[in-house]
Computed example of a mutant assay.
Amino acid sequence: MNFKDLSNKTLINDQEIDWEYISDGVKRKIIAYDDHLMLVKVAFEKDAIGAVHNHPHLQMSYVAEGSFEVTMGEDKKILNKGDVFFAPTMVFHGVVCLEDGLLIDIFNPHREDFLR
């Protein structure tokens, strides 16, 4: 299923959505979105990096699997399955995957750049 078919969809089967290659050891699935909210799964292989970056969107990320070293502004902390990080607007953040892992990212508003 193409991610553009997911806009405003209310019942979604994960297995119908293809993974999108992002970089070495990182892939993502846009699961659901509308103009205000977006949910994205991001799978990481051990040692893969989510480069430090910032954006105008609010972001919350739930560690569904694995372990990550998370940088948030000037802080750095190891987060494990069940932990969460919150990236406020324009705060630099990034991750290093310490063991194979999965993040569930929520953005407000949706990431228009992910839809291109």
Rank of each mutant, 00 (worst) to 15 (best):
E20T: 11
D47K: 09
D100K: 10
T71K: 13
A64H: 12
W19L: 02
F86L: 12
I31E: 10
F107D: 02
A43T: 00
A43L: 06
L11R: 11
H57E: 14
M60K: 09
L103P: 01
D5R: 08
G50C: 03
K4W: 09
F3P: 00
H53R: 11
V84A: 06
V70R: 03
P109C: 02
F85I: 05
F44H: 10
E45I: 02
Y33T: 05
E112R: 04
K4T: 04
F44Q: 07
L102S: 02
S23P: 12
D18S: 15
A87V: 15
H110K: 09
N108H: 12
T10L: 14
V91S: 00
L102W: 02
K27E: 15
K77H: 08
E16R: 10
V70G: 01
E20M: 07
N80Q: 13
K77E: 14
I12D: 10
G94M: 05
K76N: 03
V26P: 11
L39I: 14
I30D: 04
A51S: 11
L103Q: 05
I78D: 03
S23I: 08
L39W: 04
P109S: 03
D83E: 13
Q15Y: 12
W19D: 10
M90S: 06
G25H: 08
N13R: 15
A51Y: 13
H93G: 06
D34T: 03
T71L: 06
G101Y: 03
D5Q: 14
K9D: 00
N80W: 01
F68T: 08
G50Q: 12
L6K: 07
Y62C: 00
G25R: 10
A32D: 09
R111W: 07
K76T: 14
D18V: 03
F44E: 12
V63F: 06
S7R: 15
F92Q: 12
W19K: 13
A87F: 04
I104P: 01
G101N: 05
I30H: 09
K41P: 01
A64Q: 14
N54I: 04
G25W: 13
E69M: 12
D75T: 10
F85T: 00
F114D: 00
F86P: 00
N13F: 14
Y62I: 08
E74Y: 08
L98P: 01
K27P: 05
P109N: 01
V91M: 12
H110A: 02
G66N: 07
V26E: 13
V42Q: 07
F68Y: 09
H93Q: 06
G25M: 14
I104G: 03
L39K: 05
A48V: 08
N8A: 10
E45T: 06
T89D: 14
Y62M: 03
K41C: 00
G94I: 00
K41I: 00
M90A: 05
E74A: 09
F3V: 01
A64M: 09
I17K: 05
I78V: 15
F92D: 15
G25T: 07
G82V: 03
H110C: 12
